[in-house]
Write a protein that binds this DNA or RNA. Structure first.
Length: 585
RNA sequence: GCGCUCGUAGCUCAACCGGAUAGAGCAACGGCCUUCUAAGCCGUAGGUUGCAGGUUCGAGUCCUGCCGGGCGUGCCA
């Protein structure tokens, strides 16, 4: 409908240009909006206001001329000039209601664009270090990323979902050392666990499995392990130096077996993360290994590329990337004096790799604490000759958990963080998925556990699901009364739906496709969440004032048709949010 | 200090590319079940959009300054 009106305006503009009322060199940007106030009709355009200045005309007068020049169209009942020069369009009942037929005909596909008709995009999200279970902060990134990816796909974009596995680097070595030390404890060796090691109980579980699968293969005398290791922090030393020495010792004593211990930790935790996400309805096409960037030579190749273009220089023995040439605050080290490449070097290689895979757009969903990295990564992309605009970085703020009005304290140091799995078990996947995306991602959010758990109207998830279940319930009731819903008869009797609430409801349904598009292209799932809440509200309002199972067959079928259309759109929307649409509650 | 970001009803948040009288929910108060699920509906009340300027037909939205919160600012990962 919006499209149609825009075309009518375009035609009117051409007419006015042809007869000399408007200059030929204007570049109109035709906007048609949903009206906020019913008194303003169904749709409105501000075209006369935006053209008033370049056309050097009074906006209301111009609006009138545009109206006069509008081609006649059966769907438009009347137009009005209002306010400073808006053109309001009043659409006929019949053409508003045609959307019901579209919904029922298209079913699950209603609102979706043509599959893979758009660009190819990659969405990378969560990508938490595999050093422990996911916590509630990762949960928001997971829900947000999964929904953004699903929305894009629904909008016709070809989407690849990817998890970047940080399976290299010091943190992973600390993990391996932690596993190994717990393993030694399983062999009844007494040792003091490093303060900077991973304290979680899951480390013991991994060590236990290691004993089960490999017996004492990795066992070494503790005396050899701790010999000449610098003191830990509680003993007056430096915890970083202490743990690094332990890692080095583990590598010495285990030789080639070190990698087995390392992989045992990595695979166990990664397996847990996959399972966790899978249960949360979050799935990936690709789990991309950071280590593979080194073995494939991408890291050295990326650095060579930058070198060849003259963006690298040596200073103090380190190799620097001149990112300041591309707007970064300071230059960055890519290779240390000891020959080790930095994490940033891997990032450069990773993004080079992404762009070489030919995506039209690369979307990174990062925790908000990473926002300082955007400039340097974009700088690297640009330096390698790619368009930095093709990288879209979306930041997700952390969620603060509340139990009622009480804040749930979390700290990684004390190990008292709430895991995503615990949250899902307590609150349920549906409420989790919904709550996480109901607020703008770059906004801090308060996640109230008590509210998410309540099964009442206070909880928007149940409110929406209940609307869906209500329609199902009516259809069951209908059947038990020995009646059936006749879709064709319903569609043929649309003119019987004459109340204002019915029209509101249908107009809300008609907004679904554009809402979906908007939510997808702007990476804003909350728009869809809010839309569904509004739709459910409109439905409940209508339902409360209108009986569906009535003797008047024509009216009954018309109302049932509307109900089923609402159910369809609710189901489509909930599916995209990863929330179930129950048939009864 | 510098950079990014946010500031909207008592609370949690919306507001489509700059549009008309800034909207929901919760909390508060008052109503509605012999009727398809009351997990619902209706109504009342609640605002100088942090402050001060600027841009224009029009600003919560764009620009400048200030105030306040968050994050970043490692040869860490």
């Amino acid at each position: 409908m919006k499209e149609q009106i825009a075309q009518l305006i375009d035609a009117a503009l051409s007419t006015l240009i042809a007869n000399g009322t408007l200059p030929a060199d204007i570049t109109p940007n035709i906007q048609v909006e949903n009206t906020r106030d019913k008194a303003h009709g169904d749709f409105a355009s501000n075209i006369a206001l935006t053209l008033a200045k370049p056309a050097r005309r009074n906006p209301r007068e111009l609006a009138q001329q545009l109206c006069d020049a509008l081609p006649t169209n059966g769907s438009i009942e009347k137009t009005e000039i209002a306010g400073p020069g808006f053109i309001n369009f009043f659409v006929s009942q019949a053409s508003i209601f045609t959307v019901l037929g579209d919904i029922l005909e298209q079913g699950d596909a209603f609102g979706r664009g043509q599959a893979n008709s758009g660009p190819r995009m990659q969405v990378e999200f969560v990508s938490a270090n595999p050093t422990g279970p996911l916590h509630v902060g990762h949960g928001r990134g997971a829900a947000y990323g999964a929904t953004v990816a699903d929305l894009l796909e629904a909008a016709g974009v070809e989407v690849e979902r990817e998890y970047y596995v940080n399976d290299a680097g010091r943190q992973m070595n600390i993990l391996a050392a932690s596993v190994w030390l717990r393993y030694l404890e399983q062999h009844e060796q007494e040792l003091t666990f490093p303060s900077n090691g991973y304290q979680g109980h899951y480390i013991r579980d991994i060590a236990h499995d290691l004993v089960k699968d490999h017996g004492d293969r990795f066992n070494r005398p503790v005396a050899d392990v701790v010999a000449d290791i610098p003191a830990d922090e509680p003993a007056g030393g430096d915890k970083e130096v202490h743990i690094d020495a332990l890692i080095e010792r583990a590598q010495q004593l285990l030789g080639d077996d070190y990698e087995m211990v390392f992989d045992a930790g990595l695979n166990s935790i990664l397996g847990d993360i996959r399972e966790d996400l899978g249960e949360f309805g979050v799935n990936y096409q690709e789990w991309f290994s950071e280590r593979s960037l080194t073995s494939s030579g991408d890291v050295s190749r990326a650095l060579e590329q930058l070198e060849a273009k003259g963006y690298l220089y040596e200073q103090d023995g380190n190799l620097w990337f001149r990112s300041t040439d591309f707007g970064d605050d300071k230059d960055r080290v890519v290779k240390r004096a000891n020959g080790q490449t930095t994490y940033f070097a891997s990032d450069i290689a990773y993004h080079m790799n992404k762009f070489e895979r030919g995506f039209d757009k690369v979307v990174n969903i990062w925790g908000a604490d990473h926002h300082g990295y955007i400039a340097r990564v974009k700088a690297a992309i640009q330096a390698m000759g790619y368009d930095p605009e093709k990288l879209e970085v979306r930041l997700v703020q952390f969620a603060i958990l509340y139990r009622g009005s009480e804040r749930v304290q979390m700290s990684t140091r004390s190990g008292s963080f709430v895991t995503l799995r615990e949250l899902r078990n307590e609150v349920g996947n549906d409420a989790c998925r919904f709550f996480y995306v109901t607020r703008k991602a770059d906004q801090h959010m308060d996640f109230d556990l008590e509210l998410a758990k309540t099964e009442s109207k206070d909880n928007p998830v149940y409110y929406i699901q209940y609307a869906h279940a209500r329609v199902c319930s009516v259809l069951r009731k209908l059947e038990s009364e020995g009646m059936a819903w006749d879709q064709a008869a319903g569609l043929a009797a649309m003119e019987r739906l004459e109340s204002e609430t019915e029209k509101d409801l249908v107009k809300q349904l008609a907004k679904y496709p554009e809402t979906l598009q908007h939510a997808a292209l702007n990476f804003e799932p909350h728009v869809l969440a809010n839309y569904l809440r509004d739709l459910a509200g409109d439905f409940h309002t209508w339902y409360n004032g209108h009986k569906l199972i009535i003797d008047d067959a024509e009216l009954r079928n018309a109302r049932l048709t509307l109900s089923v259309a609402v159910r369809q759109v609710l189901a489509n929307g909930l599916k995209l949010l990863g929330v179930s649409a129950p048939e009864q509650m």
